[in-house]
Amino acid sequence: MRVLVTGGDGFIGQHLVEHLLDRGYEVTATMLGEAPSGGTLSPAGRAAAAWTRLDVRDADAVASAVNAARPRRIFHLAGFSSGAEAGKRSRDALAVNGAGTLNLVEAVARAPAAVHTVVVAGSADSYGGGGGGPMQERTPLRPTSVYGATKAAQDVVARGVGTALGVRVVVARLFPLVGPGQRPVFVLPSFCRRALAIRRGMAEPRLAVGNLDVERDFTDVRDGVRALADIADLDGTPHMAYNVCSGIATKIRRLLEWVLERAEIEPEIVRDPALVRSGEPAAVVGDPARLRAATGWRAERDLRACAHATLDWVASSGAARRSSGDTAP
Rank of each mutant, 00 (worst) to 15 (best):
A113I: 05
A113V: 12
A113F: 10
A114C: 10
V115K: 15
V115A: 13
H116Y: 11
H116M: 06
H116V: 04
T117W: 13
T117N: 11
V118R: 12
V119K: 11
V120Q: 09
V120H: 05
G122H: 10
A124I: 03
D125E: 11
D125M: 08
Y127H: 07
G128T: 03
G128A: 06
G128H: 00
G129N: 08
G129I: 01
G129Q: 04
G129C: 05
G129W: 03
G130A: 00
G130D: 04
G131I: 08
G133F: 05
G133E: 10
P134C: 00
M135L: 08
M135V: 07
Q136W: 06
E137W: 08
L141Q: 15
R142T: 07
R142F: 03
P143C: 09
T144C: 05
S145I: 05
S145V: 06
V146E: 11
V146S: 02
V146Q: 08
V146M: 10
Y147R: 15
Y147Q: 12
G148C: 12
G148W: 08
A149R: 15
T150K: 06
T150C: 07
K151N: 07
A152E: 01
A152R: 14
A153W: 15
Q154W: 04
Q154M: 12
Q154T: 05
D155Y: 12
D155P: 02
D155A: 07
D155G: 07
V156W: 06
V156L: 13
A158P: 06
A158S: 09
R159Q: 12
R159E: 06
R159I: 14
R159M: 13
V161S: 02
V161N: 01
T163C: 09
